[in-house]
Design a protein around this nucleic acid. Structure first.
Lengths: 333, 333
DNA sequence: GTGAAAGCGCTAACAT
DNA sequence: ATGTTAGCGCTTTCAC
């Protein structure tokens, strides 16, 4: 592989001049430019990104951390980030945690290694003060809702609490009076999905409804989990049955509907089901899903713009107006 | 950030010894090991992957090129690659082409830059002789079926022709006598999907069926494309209508079915529809899709193992027996 | 077993 | 406008 030295020699110039050419430094005469360009082509030269980074201390790789890529929410997010990053000359290193705290630490360590100049965390497993301590090694953008305040971390999030509040009210406005709730977490103050829980609780309170412990389902993520919920729901005493369920995930919602159908329970007339995410298949299901759409495209774009601006120390202001969640009404509720 | 020099100083040793410790070189006394370990911890030291790569010329990043991540086929593939790569101490740089030849070249150039030590191409846009010319800069694994022969390129592919042949025969065995065909390419010898085309043509020939030009649909990828196909099909003269269509993609198949339903044409009794990919939503559709499942998991695993073995110059033999495509029979055909 | 020193390919003062 | 030179943080002979 040709190096900058070979190019300099071939062009009859010093490496400095070639380096300047590479960095479009001003003050470099046209004829030398021409010579350098020719030499580079003749030698099939491509600068070593490695050496450049080591020396200049500015990298061009952004890390992106997700739970799992096969979740369409993350796939669409990463897709949007990749497009925006490429546009600005950055590349993406993708890491999956699969819910593992240590994997997240390993990824954060890449900031120390200088493998990545910045990290976009689309999911976070460890406490944010741990994450925050890594900001001294590189820029970090967090894209999950949180109450954590920090001058070092950058946030770009949607309002999950408000969206859930709106979704529950949507059901209430449609006349449903008993609304069950499924969450991916354990329904505690620190769990995953705690902001959605708050929205649910607040909506019940606003409408003067009581929380029914038997209508709360925890740690649900998959279609199978949804089927399990439907089974449990169907076993409840007639008088103790909800007439709607907010599933908190399209997969779970689909599972619930599928099982209800098997059991001869009709959606939405017997019981309404509402999802979350508006995944691509949601409109294609047997009973098209009423759900909450997340703005993955703009979320990803803005996350990319934000991390790049912090890396390059330029200005970028997040525009929350484009980060609204939206209720998509179809047939399941 | 602490460097190897700081660690050496703190441990009262030379950088050489510390470097040896880092590379688990033999011949290094236990007490020094202990000292080094302590010094590293005290200084919160993490080696700069950048410097290591520059000096030693062996990197630990693998590039992965896909068309688009939001296609579940690629998402599952990348997921499998990521898991296997992580296991072996490698990271993934993801690039999307969106069908653009130049993007593919840009990605190949990363091999020259030394940004990546190897590249897994899950899709390829340029001619393989161009791709092949890049093997002098790094290992390349190609994961699409091809007739191209090369000692430099590494292939890990499924037999799309055979799978299509089997799928068409599956339809024929079920008694369908007129089988329409949709492809993502333009149905020529060089187009995307040419191996599947061959399988289709061969199956027709084996069964003594004629190719009907009006039953061939080109450049279809999306649900909307599928709907368009259904519309066109419904306009055909009664006597000139196929009783089955092989859609070549689950999205297209879903679109076809959706439109047929609107038009009051019943699947599969009026016309059968078969997809390709077995995407997650395929079993959840209104009419669960009969389709061909691709072995993304093992494909991804083996692609990762293969590229790592070529990077590290160890042995790895692809096991084609685990790379079989499989017909999944559901209700649409 | 351990260390001194050269150098991977590039950038950035500092000169001129 | 162009060149000289000293490193970035690490690995790797070669010497002892």
């Amino acid at each position: 592989m040709a190096t900058i030295k070979d190019v300099a020699y071939k062009a009859g110039l010093s490496v400095t001049t070639v380096s300047r050419y590479l960095n479009n430094h001003p003050y470099i005469s046209e004829d030398k430019k021409e010579k350098i360009k020719n030499a580079m082509e003749a030698l099939d030269y491509v600068p070593s990104a490695l050496a450049t980074q080591l020396r200049s201390n500015r990298g061009t790789t952004i890390g992106v951390l997700v739970s799992r890529l096969t979740n369409p929410y993350f796939a669409y997010l990463v897709d949007a980030i990749e497009k925006k990053a490429k546009e600005q000359g950055y590349r993406l290193l993708i890491m999956q945690t699969y819910g593992d705290k240590q994997e997240e630490i390993n990824t954060l360590d890449m900031l120390k290694e200088k493998t990545i100049s910045g990290l976009i965390m689309c999911a976070v497993e460890n406490d944010l003060d741990i994450v925050e301590s890594y900001t001294k090694y590189g820029s970090i953008v967090v894209s999950t809702q949180t109450d954590y305040k920090s001058d070092l971390l950058h946030f770009i999030t949607t309002n999950q609490e408000q969206a859930t509040y709106d979704a529950i009210n949507f059901l209430i406005d449609k006349g449903y009076t008993g609304i069950a709730y499924s969450t991916g977490g354990d329904f505690t103050e620190q769990s995953h999905g705690r902001h959605r829980n708050k929205g649910y609780l607040k909506a019940l309170e606003t409408s003067g409804m009581d929380l029914n412990e038997r209508w709360i389902f925890r740690n649900n993520h998959t279609i199978e989990d949804g089927m399990q919920i439907a089974t449990e729901l169907s076993r409840l005493n007639e008088t103790d049955r909800p007439d709607a369920i907010f599933a908190g995930s399209d997969e779970v919602a689909i599972g619930i509907i599928q099982k209800f159908e098997e059991l001869g329970i009709h959606v939405p007339s017997d019981i309404a089901v509402m999802g979350f995410d508006n995944q691509p298949f949601s409109s294609l299901a047997k009973i098209p899903l009423t759900t909450v759409a997340q703005p993955m495209e703009t979320l990803g774009q803005q996350a990319a713009s934000l991390i790049i601006s912090t890396i390059e120390e330029t200005e970028f202001t997040v525009d929350p107006s484009k980060l609204q969640l939206k209720i998509i009404e179809r047939e399941s509720a």
